[in-house]
């Protein structure tokens, strides 16, 4: 005996209300719970979905929700693997060289105050890229919340902080060697943030392909 669309929706809503907020984790749980309930209903004489569901949850809810708390580690491994793959793309080196060249041009053509002001905005460029991707997929394209995507915010925040530290050092930029070091570090940070933006777009696209078209 197979569950109806409404009964599946009921399980989904119940799990969402039990704090299983990420659609990818919840989808798998819904299938597991539904499969078990179907098997229980088939084995017994009762067709009362709600009673079988209640019995299942009393027995298994704690074990089931344990999975929801353990997704973080796997999500982080997934992000770093995708990051490494994207980092080794030849495009990364091109972005770094373009950033370095661009910053050097700014340093050579503007006074030091304007240059400092420009590099203080570098973290915002990377962060805006992620936020824009997030808004487009989550709000405009109406894609649900996914575990791995939301964990991406963490490395972005780490990279966001680094240029702020460099920015303080830029006050000591008196000789060319120091300036080149600062330009190098700022360019690396911008490049890494843009790699993360590319990772975000790829992850969103893969989730969109896997889940939205099937939902």
């Amino acid at each position: 005996m197979k569950l109806t669309k409404e009964q599946i929706q009921f399980i989904d809503t119940y799990l969402e209300n039990s704090d299983v907020v990420f659609a990818d984790i919840r989808m798998e749980m819904v299938d597991h719970v539904a499969s078990d309930i179907e098997s229980r209903m088939q084995a017994s004489t009762t067709n009362d979905f709600y009673n079988v569901f209640k019995g299942y949850m009393v027995q298994n809810k704690a074990k089931l929700l344990k999975d929801n708390r353990q997704f973080l580690k796997s999500a982080d491994i997934k992000i770093w693997r995708a990051f490494l793959k994207e980092f080794l793309n030849p495009l990364t080196l091109l972005i770094f060289l373009a950033s370095f060249g661009g910053f050097y041009f700014l340093y050579s053509n503007f006074n030091i105050e304007t240059f400092r002001l420009i590099i203080s905005y570098v973290p915002l460029i990377g962060l805006s890229g992620f936020l824009l991707t997030y808004v487009v997929y989550h709000k405009v394209k109406n894609l649900k919340r996914f575990s791995v995507v939301e964990r991406l915010a963490m490395p972005f925040l780490v990279f966001y902080q680094i240029p702020n530290i460099i920015f303080n050092f830029s006050y000591q930029a008196k000789n060319l060697a120091t300036v080149l070091w600062i330009l190098g570090i700022v360019s690396i940070v911008l490049t890494l943030m843009l790699v993360l933006v590319r990772v975000s777009i790829k992850l969103f696209k893969s989730y969109e392909k896997q889940y939205k078209t099937l939902a």
Binding site: L3, M27, E28, D31, E38, K78, R81, Q210
Partner: peptide
């Protein structure tokens, strides 16, 4: 899956998505 040992495929089965 995160370590790259497994691949996933999502399909619609019996009114729900299955991984």
């Amino acid at each position: 899956e995160a370590e790259g040992l497994l691949d996933v495929e999502v399909a619609k089965v019996d009114n729900r998505l299955r991984k």
